[in-house]
């Protein structure tokens, strides 16, 4: 350390002190409890989506609609996989604030970049088998009653709307990933 460039800067807050260790240990404990509670809430939110899909699959099986049951079961499995992926890929980083500042920032950017870039694999992919089977089953059941032409015409709007939404999600995430990649490249230029 050398003489500070502005004595007034370093003269400020001269009487500041660290929080008492007992209080800070209690606060650290509260923080961990908050994280656990937040995780529980996220699991509960996932359950709210998962339970109806699973119940619908069971109900379909109960009445003998096995194709629907399988499709809804696959959708429920997709929800489980995506929730798990959200936790492992897009959740909070392990806190390691003692690393050099540029490494800390680079690790955050890299994790965000990987998560955004691979959205089709970990966020959209798990829903594809269930959705394909669900739309196929609905089309097939409609065709039995209305004929294939009417069934396909009826399904065109939801299918294309789904495909459009998927393309939009992938494009937005790719765009965000490119912006983070540019920031990562800029960090490499700094060193």
């Amino acid at each position: 350390m050398t003489r500070p460039p502005f004595p007034q800067w370093t003269a400020a807050a001269g009487d500041a002190a660290f929080t008492d260790p007992a209080r800070i240990a209690a606060r650290a404990g509260r923080f961990e409890r908050t994280i656990r509670r937040r995780n529980l809430i996220e699991y509960a939110a996932g359950g709210i989506v998962l339970v109806p899909a699973a119940l619908a699959a069971l109900a379909a099986a109960w009445i003998g609609e096995y194709a629907f049951a399988l499709a809804l079961g696959l959708l429920a499995a997709g929800i489980v996989i995506v929730l798990r992926n959200l936790e492992t890929r897009a959740g909070n980083l392990e806190r390691r604030p003692e690393e050099p500042c540029i490494e800390h920032l680079r690790r955050q950017y890299r994790r965000q970049y990987e998560a955004l870039r691979s959205v089709p694999a970990w966020y959209i992919g798990p829903f594809v088998p269930g959705l394909v089977l669900l739309y196929g089953t609905v089309t097939w059941k409609s065709a039995e009653a209305l004929g294939w032409r009417a069934a396909i015409e009826g399904m065109a709007v939801p299918v294309f709307a789904t495909i459009g939404a998927v393309i939009a999600v992938v494009a937005l995430n790719r765009w965000a990933a490119r912006r983070i990649r540019a920031r990562l490249d800029a960090l490499d230029q700094l060193e």
Partner: peptide, 29 residues
């Protein structure tokens, strides 16, 4: 953030070598 971190550490009177070690930037940067 990295620019800000360097400037605050400089205002605290830290040397370039120490700032480089804290931030992970080179002394030149």
């Amino acid at each position: 953030r990295l620019d800000a971190q360097v400037i605050v550490l400089w205002l605290e009177g830290e040397r370039a070598r120490d700032i480089a070690e804290i931030t992970g930037l080179s002394e030149g940067a």
